[in-house]
Design a protein around this nucleic acid. Structure first.
Lengths: 165, 165
DNA sequence: CGCGGATTGTTGTCAATGACAACATTTACA
DNA sequence: TGTAAATGTTGTCATTGACAACAATCCGCG
């Protein structure tokens, strides 16, 4: 059986193509993706995280680790399950992460006085020092993001998202 | 050497804790995370993707595959590199994804008439049929998202993000 | 008190993903 | 022409998320 008729490779003649050779590659038509909020949220999130990971690279800290450290600092003595619930991460994933943070000497787990099953989480002195510096790097990153988005868009986005959460 | 003095496990007496047993677990203080736009963008993105993956489960299609199909439909005959650039995914990752889509009989790759290195990408008839149904599922998902966010917040978020992109 | 169910922390596995490097082929340009 | 760049492909590596299973412990109820 013969192959189906080959569709024209010029059916859509590259709308808006820049005829100058060497120009930046033309962006394609996103079609229905333009109507999907998740597409844009995803792109923004990926860009923000890439830059944040770069910003935190001096301490070799991932965004998830950063958020865990912040929650322990602000909520000392809480058990792992409370941290995991508040950050929407699995207990299993948090347990592995905490092993690493403990290995670095940034946190300590003490047996809970209230509940024999749970561990009370605290930052160590070294953890507090490290987190202070890490938070400064994260703040720098946030300022860059604000400049990148424009102060007005940044402010409106933050208001919408916080109001929603 | 003695253990360092154990910090009080009641340093912060669980602000706003609900004294009723069995109530939903109290949310912890997010601290500086409240000032990081990326935290909220991430949470929204994860929620949207989880729901979208569920919505597309009948076709066993992932969001990335969906976006690739849409771009091929709207830009038939384009080479892989153009798709990859437009979606911010690696050529290597796209190549693997296209193998799977080709295996399902949804796309075909024809040798480009212009460039001996590249493949011109097209949907097959089956691919068009599948994508039509997949887009309908994605639209249902988008409507649910609009209800979840509230029509006004949805509209404002979409405007801000599109304007930015 | 004793028991069953729920919770906590842990370990292990599995699949999916992203980031890289390397490569052959082909094109573009100086 | 010859050198650099682009394209598609393969393979590897580390990371991640989602699950299941497990021991220890707590809770509620008879």
């Amino acid at each position: 059986m013969a192959a189906k008729p080959r569709p024209s490779q010029r059916a859509v003649p590259v709308i808006g193509e820049d005829s100058r050779a060497g120009a930046e590659a033309a962006r394609l038509d996103l079609g229905i993706l333009e109507g999907h909020l998740g597409y844009f949220v995803r792109r923004l999130q990926v860009e923000i995280f890439q830059q944040l990971i770069t910003a935190l690279a001096p301490f070799n800290v991932r965004p998830a680790q950063f958020s865990v450290l912040v929650l322990i600092e602000r909520n000392p003595g809480q058990p792992q399950a409370a941290i995991a619930r508040s950050l929407n991460i699995e207990r299993a994933a948090l347990a592995k992460m905490l092993h690493e943070l403990e290995r670095r000497g940034w946190i300590q787990r003490l047996p809970s006085v209230d509940d024999g099953r749970s561990h009370a989480l605290f930052l160590t002195g070294a953890g507090e020092d490290a987190l202070t510096r890490i938070k400064a790097l994260a703040q720098d990153h946030e300022r860059r993001l604000e400049r990148r988005l424009g102060a007005r868009r940044y402010r409106e986005l933050a208001a919408l998202l916080k109001d929603f959460g």
